[in-house]
Design a binder for these strands. Structure first.
Lengths: 161, 161
DNA sequence: CCTATATAGATGCATTTGCATGTATATTTA
DNA sequence: TAAATATACATGCAAATGCATCTATATAGG
């Protein structure tokens, strides 16, 4: 669990959660599932691809002309290597991105968004943005939103994005 | 979107979210994914089946000897009809539950947890419970936990469980 | 009572996902 | 610099999921 650097004996009492903690966990699941399925449904209803496409396109658009390597997408999007590989393949097939051989690294490809891809991302935002507002913004006051943001931050380890 | 009962013209300005709202949404996703994968991993590491099995067994254990119909599980667990059908089938195969023909309804089966199933649920709890504590309880003070619980409640519609 | 419709649950088929492994190139080490 | 190891990405295969549809029984309407 961790590296012991001294002679102390560490004992972990990993105890059971309180009812409040369990309920919070259950509500985290519900809030996520409900919001997520509402958003995916809205995209699907408008004949758009799933959210994962948006995420990838946004990441690529931010990266600009230089594009990104697949392993960079992997880390940015917290996806498995094979998920990135296949998602890139599918999005490329629809010409929303292009894959070029990397000059520095013969193993790798550089992934670059196309104009068509930028356009798709923007059109998806017209659905996605207002839906985020509907499932989060409209249900909380600005102070509550800030508070929720902060509390969720406590649950997340590492880069707090 | 809703039933208009008068002659008024309703205009919806469904606007775009603030940066804070978007960040809250992103953190909801991260908090969920991170916590969930940590918990699923812990179960899998201990050679236990996935969380969905626990949820179903818990629901069945609460229902007692009378058991539950599949459509009741469907609603309780917010699963699709075919998901319940297949999950029940898999859990039955390992004898953690049994299916009996319903007396009142020739179409249906009654799903009842077995002793073996109760035992499994309890053993899973020894992993699951402390993990909930680790991913939620340990990262928040009791007041923060109560606050998070309440804010997530705002995001959830319908039965606030 | 007979017909039409609704509900409970199962399942075939296509798509997606996860795991393990494969191929190719890069880096390290001896 | 040759061999061993690590990294980047692709992919075969099995399991899981989603959708549509099927069967069987129940209920409603004439």
């Amino acid at each position: 669990m961790f590296a012991c650097q001294c002679k102390c004996i560490y004992i972990f009492f990993m105890t059971y959660p309180t009812d409040e903690t369990v309920q919070t966990w259950i509500r985290l699941i519900r809030a996520y599932n409900q919001s997520m399925s509402e958003i995916e449904q809205a995209l699907s209803d408008s004949d758009f691809p799933p959210l994962s496409w948006y995420d990838m396109l946004l990441e690529l658009e931010r990266a600009g002309n230089k594009g990104l390597r697949q392993y960079e997408l992997e880390r940015a999007l917290l996806l498995k290597q094979y998920s990135v590989s296949r998602l890139v393949e599918k999005i490329e097939k629809k010409q929303y991105l292009k894959r070029e051989a990397s000059k520095d690294d013969g193993r790798g490809k550089v992934i670059i968004i196309t104009e068509k891809g930028k356009d798709l991302r923007q059109r998806m935002w017209h659905i996605y943005g207002p839906k985020i507002e509907a499932v989060i913004g409209q249900k909380l006051s600005p102070e509550e939103c800030r508070e929720l943001n902060s509390l969720l931050g406590n649950l997340i380890s590492e880069p707090h994005n």
